[in-house]
Amino acid sequence: MIDGTALALVAGAIALYVYDASLMLFRDEVVFTHGARGWRATLGSGLVLGGRYLVVPGAWAPGRPIFRAGWSDTVPRDRPRAPMRAVLQALRPLQWASRTLAVLLFVGMPLGLFLQVGPRWMLALLVGLYGIAAACVAWTWRCRRVFGLDRKAFAALAFDVLACPPFAINIVMKLTLHIGLPNPPGDFARRLLPATDCAALLQAAHARMYPDASNEETLR
């Protein structure tokens, strides 16, 4: 059985991961995710904290690209951006690495503690976790131009990933949030979401941003 200390270790790892995977959206923000079934969008849950909407878009699917944007964003991009196809292709090795990290941390560690396999198992687990995290950092450096990372941004990401294994699982989310969308969210939704999903998203976003406006209006 897992004793209290081991249980606290597992619970702490899960809490750190979920915390790092959570986003708090302003009322004009939307999150786009890319998975096996294509693109999806969410405005967050009904839980509002401090005027912001909680969303945990990638907690149950480690390695999923997550892009955040706002209809009120007016600041032009000051750096060139790689095409979306190139970005998603460069992310693929990191996606597999994120899933492997999640299995090691949330399956391997509790299983080892439950079976009381001894220190060698835990040492091998730690070597695996930090080895994969280091490989993720190396791949990110190799693809830093595709990801639009300068040295300062890369250093911050590398520290986050290497200092805390639960945070390393979210490396894909960290990168895609940094990269951002190539188009305003409305244009992006019209181009990549199914027509019905796009219409529902724009209507819901308009209702959230302008609660006193007509229900028949949508964002452009």
Rank of each mutant, 00 (worst) to 15 (best):
M1V: 10
T5W: 05
L7A: 15
L9A: 13
V10R: 01
V18K: 09
F26E: 15
D28K: 01
D28C: 00
E29Q: 15
V30R: 00
V31A: 09
F32R: 05
F32M: 09
T33I: 04
L43A: 12
S45A: 12
L47H: 13
L47G: 00
L49Y: 12
L49H: 02
G51M: 01
G51F: 03
R52C: 01
L54M: 12
L54H: 04
V56G: 03
A59V: 14
A61D: 08
R64N: 04
R64P: 01
F67K: 13
R68Y: 02
R68L: 15
D73S: 14
T74V: 12
P76E: 06
D78Y: 11
D78H: 13
R79S: 13
A82W: 12
R85D: 14
A86C: 02
V87S: 04
L88I: 00
P93F: 12
L94I: 02
L94S: 10
W96T: 13
R99M: 11
R99D: 00
L101W: 07
L101M: 12
L104I: 08
L104C: 06
M109H: 05
M109E: 07
P110A: 03
L111W: 05
L111C: 01
L111V: 13
G112C: 03
G112P: 09
G112I: 06
L113N: 02
F114G: 10
L115N: 07
G118C: 11
W121D: 04
W121G: 04
A124H: 10
L125V: 10
L126M: 09
G128Q: 03
G128F: 04
L129Q: 10
G131H: 02
C136L: 01
V137S: 07
V137P: 09
V137W: 08
A138M: 04
R142S: 00
R145D: 14
F147R: 04
F147C: 04
G148P: 06
R151I: 00
A153Y: 04
F154W: 15
A155G: 10
A155H: 02
A156I: 07
A156V: 12
D160K: 05
V161I: 15
V161P: 03
L162R: 06
P165I: 08
P166Y: 10
A168D: 02
I169F: 01
N170K: 11
T176G: 06
L177A: 07
L181A: 08
L181I: 05
P182E: 02
F188V: 01
R190C: 05
L192D: 01
L193R: 12
A195Y: 03
T196F: 04
L201T: 02
L202K: 09
Q203A: 11
A207C: 06
M209T: 09
Y210R: 14
E216V: 09
E216P: 00
